[in-house]
């Protein structure tokens, strides 16, 4: 999806470096600008971790609150704030998933989401959301079979669109490690998805 489709105002004159500096200085307006610029990106990022649009919306909101709480550490890697935001949001999504899993199994969770969709949503839209969630849940379930470090790299590069360098900065590993782990995890995930398809078609 293009940045403009996600509501990112690329033509804005304020660079992420400037926004990061203002955020570190405790400027609430900078926080608002960061939200305007990246809310959709973080929303989708959280969906890719939670496989639920409603949970993703809550997690997105919690992530921005956390961003404000840890604003003193804000940093733009290569002039982009997004990798750091992803780092913060990733922690929030992990915590959100943990607490959610303590309360309910995945099936029950999907059922709740289905029931929780706004009543005025068009039927097709509702079906679309639920379909999204089912597909995402399958992907997330497959990815979770990979080692934890591989999961992170796969999601950050293949799903979230970070460069190798940015992913390396977020995770704190060398770029070469990102490359090798990504290659390994792509291969492994393809095997897992293929096996999953075979089982479903039996």
């Amino acid at each position: 999806m293009k940045a403009s489709e996600l509501g990112i105002r690329e033509s804005d004159g304020v660079t992420d470096d400037v926004l990061a500096a203002r955020l570190r200085a405790g400027d609430p307006e900078a926080m608002g600008e960061i939200y305007d610029r990246y809310a959709d990106r973080i929303y989708n990022f959280c969906f890719r971790r939670t496989a639920s649009w409603s949970v993703a919306e809550d997690a997105m909101a919690a992530a921005f609150l956390e961003v404000w709480r840890v604003r003193g550490r804000a940093v733009a890697y290569d002039g982009e704030l997004l990798p750091w935001l992803y780092g913060v949001a990733g922690n929030v999504c992990r915590n959100s998933l943990r607490s959610q899993r303590r309360q309910t199994a995945l099936g029950a969770k999907l059922h709740l989401v289905e029931g929780g969709v706004h009543e005025d949503d068009h039927a097709d839209a509702v079906a679309g959301r639920v379909d999204d969630e089912r597909r995402m849940a399958e992907l997330v379930a497959a990815v979770e079979q990979l080692p934890e470090p591989d999961q992170q790299i796969l999601m950050l590069v293949a799903w979230d669109g970070l460069t190798y360098q940015q992913a390396a900065e977020v995770i704190g590993v060398p770029v070469g490690t990102v490359r090798s782990r990504l290659s390994r995890s792509r291969t492994r995930l393809a095997e897992l998805m293929s096996r999953s398809d075979e089982e479903r078609n039996r």
Partner: peptide
């Protein structure tokens, strides 16, 4: 295959207000 969506305008505005 990964789905992407935008926040609804209502949700975006409500969450922004809560954040600020």
């Amino acid at each position: 295959q990964i789905p992407e969506r935008r926040l609804s305008d209502e949700a975006r505005a409500r969450r922004r207000t809560e954040l600020m």
